[in-house]
Design a protein around this nucleic acid. Structure first.
Lengths: 219, 219
DNA sequence: CGGAATAGGTACCGTACGGTACGGTTCTTC
DNA sequence: GAAGAACCGTACCGTACGGTACCTATTCCG
């Protein structure tokens, strides 16, 4: 994981470094390990600066989410002309990327944090995570699906429904299992392949798009 | 919600009452609201008894999970002879039950609790929830799917894969969204219907099992 | 050069939690 | 009916956190 990639727009380099350290602490030890004193010690800054920059602990958590998301960028290829093979490839790449993002240390830690808070803060962090965290990946998938329809390769009434179908086929209950502490898949690529196969059977227009059943060795 | 249904095997009535109160506190205010002092006050018992019965706070949490699971029973109809309509009905009922269970107050609260702890306790609670919490519902689905195959109505290579496909089609990312604080679906039945349609297209043997596309008004 | 802003270090405060100890009360059991 | 266990209520302890205050060091800028 690159520690100090492109600087964020909203934070000074010093603040970014502190936020990166905060994420490290959170990933290592969960929200109990992310104390203001501990962060100040680990990041060589003062608690007073933390409160000046972020207001209070909740502000810090929100800043961490915003900071992490500023580091996520996805390529958008929705403009391309799609062949059926290209669509399948792009869908599989999307599915694999999705699985990898969801299985990432930082993503899991932030989701755990927001879920833990959601029962008492009116799910402010949860909203943040849903609205800003998934926007990029949602937009990418949405673009891909719409492009597939425009190219006559996919058929569906509601793009939302189709996207959620794809998401369900790719992820199933894996995200929750990982949030609960279970290890991820051994082979994301195989899972992505199977999910896209099923998705194309459901929503593809190419009638021979269903492949032979796989050896099914993913889980 | 029936407060005091069948008594558990592992807990005395008094302990069950305390655990029920603990669940109520947890649902109301999240894990911050579930303090030993608060529980003792709310349940009219002494902290000393809590520690005598459950060892420590983690023991109490584990007992809450175990207690809640002892109240969940599912009907098992896997012995029946299945027609295609009966299979579809049973699958839809299963899907609807699954959505309702996942959206339940107590289920969400316990999952949030276990997820919050999973980053620091080696996911002991998470394992508990996964291994014991889903066993019943998993067994029911597994039985249904296997019965469908025996009756020649479903085809698949791996029952696990098929089950996860069904699960993904039914739930998609809804569980995580609800854990993050979002409201559930407006119409679980419509979602169940759509998911089972898709599942039967993928794994049914009856070639005309795919129905006309629905009006898609679930979400 | 000098003052103001910025930020690090540390000490401190109030609070609330998990866990323990103890005296009094009810319930069982012989 | 008495001995004893189970249990309630409460008070208590140590700890650790969030948040604040104060003081110093560095940097920036006129």
């Amino acid at each position: 994981m690159p520690a100090d990639t492109a600087a964020s727009a909203k934070f000074t380099p010093r603040q970014s470094a502190v936020l990166a350290e905060a994420l490290r602490l959170l990933v290592e030890g969960g929200d109990k390990a992310l104390t203001t004193s501990g962060l100040a010690r680990a990041a060589n800054c003062s608690k007073e600066s933390l409160y000046k920059w972020f207001g209070d602990r909740d502000g810090l958590l929100a800043a961490m989410i915003s900071f992490q998301q500023s580091k996520v960028r996805t390529a958008d290829r929705s403009g391309e002309r799609l062949s059926v093979e290209a669509l399948r490839d792009h869908l599989e790449i999307f599915a694999r990327d999705l699985l990898e993002v969801l299985a990432g240390d930082v993503s899991l830690a932030l989701n755990r944090l927001a879920i833990g808070q959601s029962s008492r803060d009116g799910s402010k962090l949860g909203k943040l995570l849903l609205e800003h965290g998934r926007r990029e990946i949602d937009r990418r998938a949405r673009g891909l699906i719409e492009a597939g329809k425009r190219s006559g390769l996919l058929r569906f009434n509601d793009a939302d429904d189709a996207y959620h179908t794809l998401y369900g086929l790719v992820v199933s209950d894996l995200h929750v299992r990982m949030l609960l502490g279970e290890l991820g898949l051994k082979d994301n690529t195989a899972q992505a392949h199977k999910a896209v196969d099923a998705f194309l059977i459901l929503h593809g227009t190419n009638k021979d798009s269903g492949e032979a059943p796989r050896a099914s060795a993913a889980r």
